[in-house]
């Protein structure tokens, strides 16, 4: 479980996060949604420690991040897995070496077991027989899968995904969403996903927080999303005519 307590973050005079508090639950896919520029990525970067909040606190299973020493923070980082928007696979390494990288840096396993573990993770995400290919030689969807395999190689307790479907076709997007949901349950992780893709929201939104201009505007789950009485949220959710139509039909039925 990750708890945020009154997170503020500004860049010069621009206040990007205006006091966000919430709880992200273990074993669930927690979504942060909002328009571009609403502060989602800044919030995610604050949670994973790439940015330091100006005030407020982040608790990882009741461990306060601000009170942690350097060693504790390094230990905590080995419990995090991150899936970046652009996959962020290392260009100079093969797919297998990418997944092996965190194992080589942090695992005490012998080399044979590390390779075994890396291959298990790649097989788990459906990437067989491309171990020796470089990231530039595989498709965007495969790169995302490889990045997920790398993220789960050390059995993380927390998984963060920054717009996991960006640049993918709808079919591949669904497969990536399902994969993230499956591994969240399988590894009992606290998964936080940053997205503005409504298909992902209705597929994965077990817990959703909606950010509007740096404020938490709404909190709920996918079942509540279409019935919420929040104007700003409705504007965001029903921006697509497809959702408008389908929701109207659902209400009629």
């Amino acid at each position: 479980m990750i708890r945020l307590e009154d997170i503020h973050k500004s860049f010069d005079q621009n206040e990007v996060l205006k006091g966000i508090s919430t709880v992200f639950e273990t074993g669930k896919t927690n979504l942060i949604i909002g328009q571009s520029g609403s502060g989602k990525t800044v919030l995610l970067k604050c949670i994973i420690g790439l940015l330091e909040p100006d005030s407020g606190d982040i608790l990882y299973d009741n461990r306060r991040f601000a009170e942690m020493g350097q060693k504790e923070r390094t230990n905590l980082r080995s419990e995090l897995g991150m899936l970046f928007q652009g996959s962020a696979l290392f260009d100079s390494l093969t797919v297998e070496e990418n997944v092996l990288f965190p194992l080589r840096m942090f695992s005490e396993l012998n080399n044979k077991d590390k390779v075994k573990r890396a291959r298990y993770c790649l097989d788990r995400v459906g990437l067989k027989d491309i171990y020796s290919q470089f990231p530039s030689e595989i498709s965007g969807g495969m790169q995302k899968r490889a990045a997920i395999a790398r993220a789960i190689s050390l059995n993380p307790k927390y998984l963060f995904c920054d717009e996991p479907n960006s640049g993918l076709d709808p079919l591949t997007s669904i497969k990536i969403d399902e994969l993230i949901m499956d591994i969240t349950k399988e590894y009992k992780m606290t998964t936080i996903i940053n997205t503005h893709d409504m298909n992902s929201v209705v597929t994965m939104g077990e817990k959703i927080i909606f950010i509007y201009q740096g404020d938490k505007e709404w909190e709920g789950c996918k079942e509540d999303l279409f019935y919420a009485k929040n104007e700003k949220l409705n504007e965001f959710v029903f921006a697509s005519k497809f959702f408008q139509k389908n929701t109207e039909n659902a209400f009629k039925e």
Binding site: L50, S78, A88, P102, M105
Partner: peptide, 17 residues
């Protein structure tokens, strides 16, 4: 620079490297 803008360096930092 390419590693930086393609978030590869961020990925290492998050891992604790």
């Amino acid at each position: 620079g390419t590693m930086r803008i393609s978030e590869q360096i961020d990925a290492m930092d998050i891992m604790g490297v």
